[in-house]
Computed example of a mutant assay.
Amino acid sequence: MRYVSAANQHALEQRMLVARDFLWLVARDRKTGAPVTEGLWSDVGNITAAIVNPDNGLAETRIWYGAGSLIAIDDIPLVANLSVQNVTIRMSQVHEEVERIVRDYDCRQARVEVYRGLFNPETRLMVAPAECRFVGFVDKIELKTPSENEDGAVTMTCASHTQEFTRSNTETRSHASQILRDPNDTFYKDAATVEDWEVWWGSEKGKVPTQKKRKKFLGIF
């Protein structure tokens, strides 16, 4: 079940809300590799707005750049399972903040957070901290340079954080890998050579041949 704060619920019942989207990116500095954060929102002007941090559930204030920088975000499926969801985000190519993000920073596998904030059109204030609707990573980024009389845009295809469950473990069953966890753990010390060991068995020297598994007859033998 989707959680809605009491303030948002009351405003929804009054039918006096205007929704705005917020996009938070955690990219990397190309020179140092240090994380760099940038916030964009789908309205005019730069604002300071509160959101609910998806990692700890606490409200915090961030700076968001506007002026048409964020064009559109595809509908986000609200599902209660571990399937990987893909979301397409389109941003203005000519906006200086977008240019700085995609060209100065490394956005490959950058963390992406999408929030939805509800504003009171009379006071022009957000009713409650924006709730997180999507957490994931930039899977693909496309910079379209337009020809004359054409529109250009920056398109990001993002995959939800549940894609981490599909990654295979890079660890191997080897002594070198095992001692990284514990220098005294020698469980896999002979794993690479044990299959080539030769064992004396009676009067024969060499590898011990393995016996083929006998077929069962009527499940008895």
Results as ranks from 00 to 15, higher is better:
Asn184Ile: 01
Glu164Lys: 10
Asp139Pro: 05
Tyr115Pro: 13
Val26Trp: 02
Asp21Asn: 08
Leu180Thr: 10
Ser83Glu: 13
Ala59Asp: 13
Val36Arg: 04
Val84Ser: 02
Asn86Ile: 05
Asp29Thr: 01
Val102Met: 10
Asn8Thr: 04
Glu204Asp: 14
Thr48Ile: 06
Lys216Thr: 14
Glu204Asn: 15
Arg124Val: 10
Thr88Asp: 13
Thr166Glu: 00
Pro129Asp: 13
Lys31Val: 11
Asn184Asp: 14
Arg20Cys: 06
Ala19Asn: 11
Asn46Trp: 05
Thr166Ile: 02
Gly152Leu: 00
Asp43Lys: 07
Val98His: 00
Val36Ile: 09
Leu143Gly: 03
Thr186Asp: 10
Gly57Tyr: 02
Arg111Ser: 11
Arg90Ser: 15
Glu171Phe: 09
Thr170Asn: 11
Gly33Glu: 03
Ile220Met: 09
Lys216Cys: 07
Glu195Gln: 14
Arg30His: 08
Pro121Ile: 11
Met16Gln: 15
Ala176Asp: 14
Thr157Val: 07
Ala49Asp: 14
Leu40Asn: 03
Pro129Gly: 12
Phe187Trp: 08
Pro129His: 12
Phe22Ile: 12
Thr145Pro: 05
Lys205Leu: 11
Pro77Ser: 02
Gln178Thr: 06
Asn149Leu: 11
Gly219Thr: 03
Ser168His: 09
Asn8Ile: 02
Gly117Leu: 10
Ile141Leu: 13
Thr157Lys: 07
Val135His: 00
Met156Phe: 15
Val199Glu: 06
Gln85Lys: 08
Phe187His: 14
Lys31His: 11
Phe187Val: 08
Arg181Tyr: 06
Trp200Ser: 09
Ala176Trp: 05
Asn149Gly: 06
Val94Arg: 10
Thr123Gly: 03
Ser160Leu: 04
Val135Pro: 01
Tyr188Asn: 15
Val36Pro: 03
Asp182Arg: 06
Ala7Phe: 02
His161Leu: 10
Ser5Ile: 04
Ser177Cys: 06
Val127Tyr: 07
Gly202Lys: 05
Thr32Asn: 01
Ile76Cys: 01
Gly117Phe: 10
Ser168Leu: 09
Ser203Leu: 03
Val44Gln: 15
